[in-house]
Design a protein around this nucleic acid. Structure first.
Length: 438
RNA sequence: GCCCUGGUGGUGUAGGGGCUAUCAUGCGGGCCUGUCGAGCCCGCGACUCGGGUUCAAUUCCCGGCCAGGGCGCCA
């Protein structure tokens, strides 16, 4: 038996088909299952995209390979050189008859969880041994979809003339208000992990980059403990000049539809593994005003005052009424951040919107205040100190164009694509209230 | 942060004041040439921690730790 990487993979399991009958190939991966029937051994070799059956009849292969094969432990890393054999009895109508076996690395036993899922493990156990958990097709499917989702979003934004930017995640100020920040030590000073690229992407509007996007982590030190919050998530942010809230809503809904279409086209196998039937939503998404939303929630038996932010109960009620993706618009100015532009005709209401999927908020955005004096007034009204926004406010004094933007939660969007109900499922190594490893 | 529930072999579970602690999967060994949740036989492996009640605690009580669920928080 060989034990070093002096071969190279010629095919992934999914590339092998019955038409390749007789061809000699090399596959590499993990031993998913081993069924030793005495005179014949079946090994399921799993790689990134599937499995292929290695079939070893004792009479037809070298005795040494046969003996080595029967000793291999589950989840070991192997490479097999073999001959493709068309066979109606094999899964997928094709199997590989081994000519040579290369044990690249043996796995310890017993395993901390079962990658074949005969016995399911709890999320906590799974996250502790995430490397093994992700070997399961139903888990890796989520991340292949996430990869495609992010790819399609980048393609869409580039097609629409957005420039990718990178803004700092180490920030000085804890004065943006709202969420709790994670304090860190920055040499002799205190600093924080960034909660949002909001202020920086707005500054870029003044810098003349009139369409920007960033896909990057944001950090929030909230002690929340729910299925839809984490302390580190990926935010997909855009900001665009010479646009209002309607313009960026149009961009957002088109982006969502294009991304769904792309995932459906390229990740059908992964969607199948997840048992996910994807429908491509039609455009435009329904626009529901905040006031109408409150009335609908109330008439569904859940109390919500006009002017109040949504409770979980009201989100759930709305999720029972509304289908798929929809916007909530015309939010009360008072419950939105200072940089959101009030409607000049009715300053109680703002040009802010949320994008919902059933009962889950996946994005929020707005047309922004671009006039310096109004912005200062809004900062004061929210009990914040304009002095701590000095560097941000300066960008508004020398030609800040009107602009709008939004932030889309990558994991929450991924949840709507994959149908998983725990946001932890959509992050390789999630960070929540208690978990900081692996 | 609040409320509820739980913590039993590697994993997932049943149970319960004293009995060899149940089952599945797994792991180790054996048999088996078409398995595909393979099958059959033999074996291995566990009561979260501290304190209390009791003749006796894995079981009851209190506390800690950890986890699951719900809510709150989430510019």
């Amino acid at each position: 038996m060989i034990n070093s990487l002096d071969w190279r993979r010629t095919h992934y399991s999914r590339d092998v088909n019955p038409e390749m009958n007789g061809q000699e190939i090399t596959v590499m991966g993990w031993t998913h299952e081993i069924r030793d029937l005495g005179g014949i051994i079946f090994v399921l070799l799993r790689d990134r995209d599937g499995t292929i059956q290695i079939t070893a009849p004792s009479k037809k292969i070298e005795k040494e390979i046969f003996e080595d094969l029967r000793k291999i432990k589950k989840e070991s890393v192997i490479a097999i050189k073999g001959t493709v054999q068309e066979s109606p009895k094999a899964p997928g109508g094709v199997e590989l008859i081994p000519l040579s076996l290369n044990l690249l690395n043996e796995s310890k036993q017993p395993l901390p969880l079962d990658p074949t899922e005969k016995v399911r493990a709890e999320i906590d156990t799974r996250l502790d041994s995430r490397f093994l958990d992700i070997r399961k097709p139903a888990v890796s499917a989520i991340f292949k979809i996430k990869s495609r989702m992010l790819h399609s979003i980048r393609v869409f934004l580039e097609q629409n003339e957005f420039l990718e930017i990178n803004t700092p995640k180490l920030v000085a100020s804890a004065t943006e208000g709202g969420t709790e920040l994670f304090p860190i030590t920055y040499f002799e000073r205190e600093a924080f992990l960034g909660q949002s690229p909001q202020l920086y992407k707005q500054i870029m509007m003044s810098a003349g980059f009139d369409r920007v996007y960033e896909i990057a982590p944001i950090f929030r030190a909230e002690e929340h403990d729910t299925l839809r919050h984490l302390n580190e998530v990926i935010s997909i942010d855009i900001e665009a000049s010479f646009m209002n809230h309607e313009d960026v809503m149009n961009i957002l809904e088109k982006l969502v539809v294009q991304s769904i279409t792309d995932v459906k086209t390229h990740c059908q196998d992964d969607l199948d593994v997840l048992g996910r039937e994807m429908e491509i939503p039609s455009l435009p998404f329904e626009r529901l005003s905040y006031d109408d939303m409150v009335d609908m929630v109330n008439s569904h038996g859940v109390a919500l005052e006009h002017g109040e932010d949504m409770s979980r109960a009201s989100e759930k009620a709305l999720g029972e009424i509304m289908e798929g993706y929809y916007f909530i618009t015309d939010w009360p100015t008072a419950i939105k951040p200072f940089y959101v532009m009030p409607d000049e005709k009715n300053p109680e209401k703002s040009f802010a919107f949320d994008l919902m999927y059933k009962d889950l908020e996946i994005s929020s955005g707005a047309m922004r205040v671009h006039k310096h004096d109004l912005l200062v007034e809004r900062i004061k009204n929210q009990g914040l100190n304009p002095a701590s926004f000095e560097k941000y406010l300066a960008a508004f004094e020398y030609g800040m164009p009107p602009h709008a933007g939004w932030g889309l939660g990558a994991e929450r969007f991924n949840m709507t694509l994959t149908g998983v109900n725990n946001i932890r499922e959509t992050v390789l190594f999630p960070r929540d209230r208690r978990r900081l490893t692996p």
